[in-house]
Amino acid sequence: MDISDLKVSNNPDVTLVTYSLGSCIGLAVWDPEVRVGGMLHYMLPDSSISQEKAKANPAMFADTGIPALFKACYKLGAQKQRMIVKVAGGAQLMDESGFFNIGKRNYAALRKMFWRNKVMVAAEDIGGMVNRTIRLNIGTGELIMKVSGKGEGLL
């Protein structure tokens, strides 16, 4: 998957991978009942900076990408109350005053939406100055996270 990309699948042989998240957020969802899962790699918190771009590519923004990811999973038979939700990314530069901190805003946008829509997060690894890659196995729901320079493990 690329930056500002969304993919869903019900094929148990598929592994969705999103590389090198930086300050972007990788959101992985999976329904164990029907073994449907999906991943979103969004870049920015809020589509108000460009409605036109959000229309062309909803996966660019949290506020348009997150609903699109859930809807795409529902189409394949997933149900919200069964879905296991995991989040990674949102890293930041070394910048105490937060002038550059888009990662934090990306995460805050997701939290706000989840709180409003009563979505629980099962696991997350957010912030810091590290770069993350995540892989979602559609057959098992396992989410592997690799942190550059530090190795990988289950999230």
Binding site: S20, S23, A91, L93, N101
Partner: peptide
């Protein structure tokens, strides 16, 4: 480019953010 995760490698985002450069040019996070 690093924030976007393009070609970051294991240095990660261990790079200094220089606020004053944005300020000098009237730019912000938006």
């Amino acid at each position: 480019c690093l924030m976007l995760g393009i070609g970051v490698g294991r240095q990660g985002l261990h790079v200094r953010g220089r606020d004053e450069i944005l300020e000098q040019h009237g730019m912000d996070i938006n």
